[in-house]
């Protein structure tokens, strides 16, 4: 009898697609019930979105002004209480979930399974270690609640259900700490598709050469309707903001098309794109490691090739 609580990730009043991916992982457990928990100061619209996800039994909401920002110190005690009666608590393995889930696990006195790639059985999971260079099979103790983070890139988002699941407000009586406070979120505003969920991503690396030169990547991405990403080298060099970083310590993504332009392909970067459908590499160095994992490779100068690509697309 598995009963799974999935913690919804949201920002700016919108549900993040990582939530529907975590629901897919919950469905793979063949759970008897999958409930989604929305913690927010204003959960209604988010809950309505979550209720449409296929496979969801109920959406639970905790509306509190304390929940206006996703602070782990504030959310974790509420989640730990709400987890009573559930066999599993699933949280997306994004910076949101990675911050919160271990705090929940420790409050419950249980271990956490990080970055679940596949569900082998209700308490048996596969997850990557060593930057994805080894995959381990992990068995969790069946007598305890399983707290797990779900590796978004390994799971397709669950689709829409024919009818919406019921939404219920949850009253959780717990005193929340005030020792940790949200100050601000600095976000690059962009009309481009979201890097984490985009079906196409164009990434630039050190080979792009400068912040100004990165315009050619943005322009090309806009041309094909892609999100923009970058290697760690490009972020460290200040070409683009850190939220565009793809790789082991940045975002791990699985778009249908990934184009790595001027990226040599350090192992840490490759970890972030292994699950992409088609990987295209454009690099002037034919020996670059990126070509070892690319499906289609093209050796040459990116500043010459990108305009040619734009022309060829027509």
């Amino acid at each position: 009898m598995s009963k799974i609580l999935v913690i919804a990730e949201h920002l700016g009043g919108k549900l993040n697609s990582s939530t529907a991916r975590a629901v897919s992982a919950a469905a793979a457990v063949k759970a008897d019930a999958i409930d989604v928990l929305v913690l927010s100061d204003a959960p209604d619209a988010i809950a309505a979105e979550a209720a449409k996800i296929d496979g969801v039994s109920r959406v639970l909401t905790i509306a509190r002004s304390d929940n206006a920002h996703a602070l782990a110190t504030v959310l974790a005690p509420q989640i730990a209480k709400a987890a009573a009666g559930y066999s599993h608590v699933f949280v997306p393995s994004t910076t949101f979930g990675k911050d919160i889930a271990p705090r929940v696990a420790a409050l419950l006195g249980v271990a956490q399974v990080s970055d679940v790639m596949s569900v082998e059985a209700a308490h048996t999971f596969k997850r990557p270690i060593y930057a994805g260079n080894a995959i381990i099979t992990v068995e969790a103790d069946a007598s305890h609640t399983v707290v797990a983070t779900i590796r978004s890139a390994s799971w397709a988002a669950a689709g829409n259900a024919a009818s919406s699941a019921p939404i219920e407000a949850l009253a959780i009586d717990v005193t929340l700490p005030t020792h940790t406070r949200f100050v601000e979120l600095k976000q690059g505003s962009s009309d481009r598709p979201d890097l984490q969920s985009a079906s196409k991503v164009v990434s630039g690396g050190r080979g792009v050469g400068s912040k100004e030169n990165f315009e050619i990547i943005y322009k090309f991405a806009d041309r094909i309707g892609a999100a923009v990403g970058a290697s760690r080298a490009a972020v460290d060099a200040g070409y683009v903001p850190s939220e565009l970083q793809v790789g082991q310590t940045g975002k791990i993504i699985a778009p249908e098309l990934y184009m790595a332009i001027g990226i040599s392909g350090a192992i840490q970067h490759l970890t972030g794109i292994k699950d992409a459908g088609t990987i295209v590499a454009i690099n002037k160095d034919g020996e670059a490691p990126i070509f070892e994992i690319a499906d289609i490779g093209l050796v040459g100068d990116l500043f010459k090739l990108i305009p040619e690509l734009e022309q060829a697309i027509g």
């Binding site: 399974v113 080894a134 381990i136 099979t137 992990v138 068995e139 499906d295 289609i296 040619e308 060829a312």
Partner: peptide
């Protein structure tokens, strides 16, 4: 410890890709 690692495996390899000679071939 609540977790037991029962097996280690190498990750699935991506199959070897192809090289194209120019932009037109890539777009095609």
């Amino acid at each position: 410890d609540h977790l037991r690692t029962t097996h280690y495996a190498a990750p699935a390899k991506r199959s070897k890709g192809v090289m194209v000679k120019d932009a037109a071939e890539l777009v095609a």
